[in-house]
Computed example of a mutant assay.
Amino acid sequence: MTAGTEDGGSFSSKVIRMVFFILLLDLLGFTLILPLLPSILDHYAQTGDVTYQSLQNVVGWFRAAVGIPMEKKYNTVLFGGLIGSLFSLLQFLSSPVTGVLSDRHGRRPLLILTTVGLISSYVVWAVSRSFNMFLLFRVIGGICKGNVSLCTAIVADLPCPKARNKGMAMIGIAFSVGFTIGPLMGAYFAVASRTTGNVFYQTPALIALAFSVADLLVIWLMLPETLTKNVKAASSGTGGSRDLLSPLSLFHFTAVTRTKDPPSKERMQKLRVLGLVYFSYLFLFSGLEFTLSFLTHQRFQFTSMQQGKMFFFIGVIMALIREDTLEESNRGNISGPFARPSLP
């Protein structure tokens, strides 16, 4: 199904609704583990796992190199940073590949593929009884976590600027709801599972698995393809693929300069500055959301439930801000990070 088979407005509205539900289910599964990570790593630290101890040596080398005090309270924070960095590094390497493949084969097939990968990662988490298996779960998840960028690409495919603005705002709302409910659910089911003696948090893993399976069904049964045949044909060149796979070329927006109607030098400079600012913002924000649970765990001895409530409070504030953004998009006045960039 393509945009030509339906009325443009109703097609865009359907796509935006589907993107919202797909991203919401994805983020609910992703955020379940956020308040649990400190406790999970504390558990493996006490078991004397060989792999854990080997990576702990890497953390010790890093701590000595940057001059961090040799105190036990920093161990979990730095180790959590190592696990988070591995996850993010794999995303950084795999996201350009996912983007290139989606430009060639369509958004829907790649969403199905990445969601199947996430399902497999949650299966590994659910059956894990060792740190090796838990680490494998994070590795698979990092490689396959392309749903957010693919949903953004789907919204960018929409023909109407107003629909794109609304779609970007709805993506923001999905983030708000996901980060509001997901961590609280993860903490609740973790507490419930620990009362039965399950220290591996199998129940939150099964809940995350259920969200991903539901996500796959929504994509398979209800999401239309938004990438037109013209765009697929334009993306078939190997040179353009190299530009989209090279991190240096991505920062310089080299692929944009090879289009039929490339922007002027002034516009390209503004685009590169905008891209660098957006990258820096996402880089810093991602570090904040991942390390916050470790900070509160070490500094204030927050339990998993207290961290879930903390994320709930943050999510409510985010939702209120996103609601104002959506109202602006409906009036056609949206600007800022949720608007589609347009160069003068």
Rank of each mutant, 00 (worst) to 15 (best):
T254L: 08
M222D: 04
R267D: 11
M268S: 05
D261C: 03
R242F: 10
P263Q: 11
V213P: 05
R258M: 08
S235T: 05
T257A: 15
A234C: 02
N230I: 04
F253M: 15
M268Q: 06
K232L: 06
T254N: 14
M222Y: 01
F253K: 14
V218S: 02
V256D: 12
L217M: 11
G237Q: 08
G240L: 12
A255C: 10
L245R: 04
L223A: 05
L217I: 13
F253V: 10
F253P: 02
E225G: 05
L227E: 00
D261I: 09
A233D: 08
T228N: 10
T238H: 06
I219L: 06
S246D: 13
S236Y: 05
R267K: 14
K260L: 10
L244Q: 08
N230Q: 12
A214S: 14
T238K: 02
H252Y: 09
P224T: 01
A255R: 09
V231R: 14
A255G: 05
I219C: 03
L223M: 12
G237N: 08
E266D: 13
L223K: 01
K229D: 14
V213A: 09
P224K: 03
S246T: 08
S235M: 06
K265I: 13
D215E: 14
N230S: 05
G240V: 00
S264N: 11
W220D: 03
S249I: 02
K260T: 13
F253R: 15
V231E: 13
E225R: 00
A214R: 00
P262C: 13
A233N: 07
S249L: 06
G239Y: 03
N230Y: 04
E225Y: 01
S241W: 00
R267I: 15
D261H: 10
D261P: 06
K229L: 07
F253A: 15
L250T: 04
H252E: 06
K265P: 04
S235V: 02
R258Y: 02
S246A: 10
S249K: 04
S241F: 00
D243F: 03
V231I: 13
S264A: 13
H252D: 09
N230H: 10
I219P: 00
K265D: 14
G240T: 03
F251I: 13
S241A: 11
P224V: 01
T259S: 15
S264M: 11
D243K: 00
R242H: 07
L250D: 00
V213N: 09
L221Y: 06
T259M: 07
L221P: 02
L221C: 08
A233Y: 04
L250P: 07
